[in-house]
């Protein structure tokens, strides 16, 4: 039988297992990216708290210690492979706790993504003009209010491509979590191929599914980015000659009018 015949055969026999694998892969990537994003946001918000010269020594110390812990987390997670992290955390912590494997995998991938996201969000915050912070502080907004209402909405828009990138990376990198026996796409392919000792056709199927997943996700994210750019036009409410008129102006027309 040719490789192509083997592919047909494996798909027809093991389609359910491929489907479950794909589902689990997507679940881990989706939840992992979302949770990692939240972790990253929180870390970046804490790390950007301004500690002025007026702060009390106690506050300064607390801030220093918290910052040290967060930095250590980011550096250690980014500096070691997720495969190794998964093995250590899973067998030392989650196995004794008898945690469900899938939950264990989702926690590991979120924890890992969080470290990368913290840096991505920090970059996003740094890309925002200092004047945006000052404009908010000058009318009495606190650090958190400034972050939540003014800075992060702009920062997140700027880092959308990087967040999308992390999602795509997670779809692929979740494959290493097959080491803690999650039936994700890689694990499913290995099983299917192993039953006939025909690994190449099985991994070709696997690669094809990964590509379809990442390609689709990339397209969807591109579309979402465009949506987030917001409308290029706005409505003028009334005019002096006709107060009830609503004139739509586009960006281009506005420029000519300037």
């Amino acid at each position: 039988m040719s490789t192509f015949d083997w592919i047909i055969r494996l798909v027809s026999e093991y389609w359910q297992s491929f489907l479950v694998g794909t589902g689990n892969t997507m679940l881990m990537a989706l939840v992992g990216t979302a949770a990692g994003f939240v972790i990253g946001l929180l870390i970046a918000m804490v790390r950007t708290i301004p500690i002025g010269e007026g702060a009390s020594p106690f506050r300064k110390w607390v801030f220093r210690i918290v910052n040290f812990i967060l930095n250590a987390y980011v550096e250690i997670i980014r500096g070691t492979p997720m495969l190794v992290q998964a093995l250590i955390i899973h067998y030392s912590l989650f196995v004794p706790l008898k945690m469900h494997h899938l939950l264990s995998a989702i926690i590991i991938i979120s924890f890992n993504t969080g470290a990368y996201m913290a840096e991505i969000v920090r970059g996003g915050i740094m890309s925002i003009d200092k004047g945006q912070f000052e404009g908010a502080h000058a009318v009495g907004m606190t650090h958190w209010q400034t972050m939540v209402h003014v800075i992060l909405p702009q920062a997140v828009r700027n880092i959308m491509p990087s967040i999308g990138n992390e999602f795509v990376v997670n779809i692929k990198d979740s494959s290493v979590l097959s080491v803690i026996s999650i039936t994700e796409l890689m694990f499913a392919s290995k099983q299917a191929g192993g039953s006939y000792s025909k690994f190449v056709p099985a991994y070709l199927i696997c690669a094809f599914i990964y590509f379809v997943l990442t390609f689709t996700v990339t397209r969807i994210l591109r579309f979402a980015e465009k949506k987030m750019e917001g409308g290029a036009s706005y409505t003028i409410c009334g005019s002096q000659s006709d107060p009830s008129a609503e004139i739509r102006l586009t960006k281009q027309e506005e420029r000519i009018g300037e």
Binding site: Q132, A138, G140, M141, V150
Partner: peptide
């Protein structure tokens, strides 16, 4: 209370510093 003080003594900037993400 710095926040309360700044609502009473507020500032207008050379570069306007309007929030770009809002109407």
């Amino acid at each position: 209370n710095l926040s309360a003080y700044r609502t009473k003594v507020t500032m207008v900037f050379q570069q306007f510093n309007l929030y770009n993400n809002m109407s």
